[in-house]
Design a binder for these strands. Structure first.
Ligand SMILES: [Mn+2]
Ligand SMILES: [Mn+2]
Ligand SMILES: [Zn+2]
Ligand SMILES: [Zn+2]
Lengths: 146, 146
DNA sequence: TTTCATTTGAGAATCATTTGCAACAAAGAC
DNA sequence: GTCTTTGTTGCAAATGATTCTCAAATGAAA
């Protein structure tokens, strides 16, 4: 059993829940994708195994609570996620025009954030830094690509 | 005409749009609320003036583009906003348990962010820093308030 | 006041996400 | 193994925020 499966199982057991075949399949799919994904994307990857879209939707909150995935930039009215293990935290720069997503390292900001958390006695589960605007390509004219 | 009305009118004219009574009313409502608000909240404030919810929804993107409001933490499936003028940028700390929202100054982070923007040649329109987790009240037990 | 483009209210349409429910599967006790 | 209990799932229907359609209203300019 791989790293993140162990972590998921541990989390589920703590809640009196079970690591079923479907949930393992969804977890595996989430870690097979190395970009941002939405519910539908995972569903496409595993629907051949008779996993329903409803189950994907029911499992995503579990993966979030377990700290295995994180919510990222919302595009086109759909919630998007990315897996965490082996993925250092990063900021997202979203171009409003072409919807390009650029990722940058977060290490320069973390010390200040953690300091603030200590002051607030806040228990951080997820840090989301999203900066929207225009990428260098779209900066000039008012294109309409994508 | 107040500061933000001037700015809105200028923005609208640049797009060949008009500063109508309804749009002015919505803008005014947005600046009368000193917390986060959603479309429905603004609607409640002005429906007595026969402004429709559809018009509120149509105006919010204009206020965003005009740089008068910004999108904040999404709660309960609803987009939420806050006005900008006279509101220094700040980070949002959202408690997953009681949905409390704490705001903290952003000035410690801005230099690093602006530096990165310069490197990326990215034109920043909006910075959104949302940290979720448990506030000090909810940290201990697994309450279920709110 | 005539003209023409923009705006608006009302209600229908969208569409991601959630839910109810009856059939199923996991896991522990025997 | 078999029984029992409790959590899980597929399916289809429900939900609900946001968007859209369209005909009537309004604004600005001439
Ligand atoms: Mn990412
Ligand atoms: Mn705020
Ligand atoms: Zn772009
Ligand atoms: Zn709390």
């Amino acid at each position: 059993m791989i790293d993140h499966e162990v972590q998921f199982k541990k989390f589920l057991q703590k809640q009196g829940l079970k690591l079923t075949r479907n949930r393992a399949r969804i977890l595996e799919a989430a870690f097979s994708v190395h970009e941002h994904f939405d519910a539908e994307k995972l569903y496409d990857l595993i629907k051949a195994d008779n996993v329903s879209l409803a189950t994907v939707y029911r499992t995503l909150p579990l993966l979030l609570e377990a700290g295995l995935i994180t919510r990222t930039v919302r595009i086109g009215g759909r919630d998007r996620f990315e897996h965490i293990l082996g993925h250092p935290r990063h900021a997202h720069w979203l171009c409003e025009n072409c919807h390009a997503v650029i990722e940058t390292d977060l290490s320069a900001l973390l010390p200040a954030i953690n300091k603030e958390a200590r002051a607030l006695k806040f228990d951080i589960q997820n840090i989301s830094i999203n900066i929207s605007g225009l990428c260098w390509k779209c900066k000039g004219g008012a294109n309409d690509s994508q």
